[in-house]
Simulated assay, not measured.
Amino acid sequence: MTNLTLVLGDIADQRADALVNAANSWLLGGAGVDGAIHARAGRALTNACRELRESRYGRGLATGQSVATTAGRLHALWVIHTVGPHWDRHDDRSSLLASCYRTALEVAAELGARTVALPAISTGIHRWPLDDGARIAVRTVRETLASWETTGRQGVKAGARTIEEVRFVLLNQQAYAAFETAMAALDE
């Protein structure tokens, strides 16, 4: 069974097999989590992202999808980039936000990651309401992991290891409290 935890801190400081980056579709760094990860990882990450842009993602990575690169100078083996949706009160994009978490975990499992660190995707500059974003994140991660345990799918490729820990890394106390509330609500 996978351990689901909350940590207050900066995702770029985490030690994990895979760090999930709330990336922009161009994969070349930006603000928030994306900027922090690119700044800390250095040139190796930037070069890997450029290679992806030139080879497979010339038009950018689609919202809700995920792809992995090297982690550069980070304390991780991989960075899994996922593009979160912008919140829009008139257009329900929750399935795209859920897809970010689901596809990031799928990529992590395919890589054989045992530990995965996730940020609060889309709750910063994309303006997703924090409580709703936390609810979607926790529910999606739990449902994804539970479905893998039920079907025995977690090692999705031959020899892949099981994800042992998924860690939500939350930058401030407000985000931590929202995720803590979301986890408690699902435990009831």
Rank of each mutant, 00 (worst) to 15 (best):
N3E: 15
L4K: 08
T5S: 13
L6E: 00
L8K: 15
G9S: 02
G9M: 03
D13A: 12
D13R: 12
A16C: 10
A16W: 09
D17K: 10
L19V: 15
N21F: 08
N21D: 09
N21T: 05
A22Y: 02
A22L: 05
A23H: 01
A23W: 01
N24A: 04
S25D: 14
W26Q: 13
L27N: 04
A31K: 03
A31G: 15
G32I: 14
A36P: 00
R40Q: 12
A41R: 11
R43C: 03
L45S: 06
A48K: 03
A48Q: 02
A48D: 05
C49K: 07
C49P: 08
C49E: 11
R50N: 08
R50Q: 15
E51A: 10
L52R: 13
L52A: 09
R53H: 08
R53L: 07
S55T: 15
Y57H: 15
R59E: 15
G60W: 12
L61C: 02
A62I: 01
G64Y: 01
A68T: 06
T69M: 08
T69Y: 01
T69W: 10
T70N: 07
T70P: 08
G72K: 11
R73D: 14
L74C: 13
H75D: 15
A76I: 01
A76Y: 10
A76K: 12
A76E: 01
A76Q: 04
L77G: 10
L77H: 06
W78H: 15
I80Y: 14
V83F: 02
G84C: 01
P85V: 03
W87A: 04
R89H: 09
R89V: 12
R89S: 05
H90Y: 10
H90F: 14
D91W: 11
D91R: 15
D91N: 12
D91L: 15
D91Y: 11
D92E: 02
R93W: 01
S94K: 12
S95F: 09
L96T: 00
S99Y: 09
Y101G: 05
Y101A: 04
V107Q: 12
V107G: 03
E110G: 15
A113R: 06
R114W: 11
R114D: 02
V116L: 09
V116S: 05
L118G: 11
L118A: 06
I121K: 07
S122V: 11
S122N: 00
G124M: 01
H126S: 05
W128M: 00
L130S: 07
L130I: 14
D131Q: 11
G133C: 00
A137H: 04
V138G: 02
T140Y: 12
T140P: 09
T140Q: 03
V141P: 08
V141A: 00
E143Y: 00
E143P: 05
T144V: 13
A146C: 03
A146I: 05
S147T: 11
W148I: 01
W148Q: 05
R153W: 14
G155P: 15
G155A: 15
V156P: 07
G159M: 13
R161S: 13
E164S: 13
F168K: 00
V169D: 04
V169S: 02
L170E: 01
L170W: 07
L170S: 02
L171R: 11
L171C: 00
N172L: 00
Q173T: 14
Q174P: 02
Y176P: 03
Y176Q: 06
A177K: 10
A177I: 01
F179C: 02
F179P: 13
E180T: 11
A184I: 10
A185R: 14
A185K: 09
L186K: 03
D187S: 13
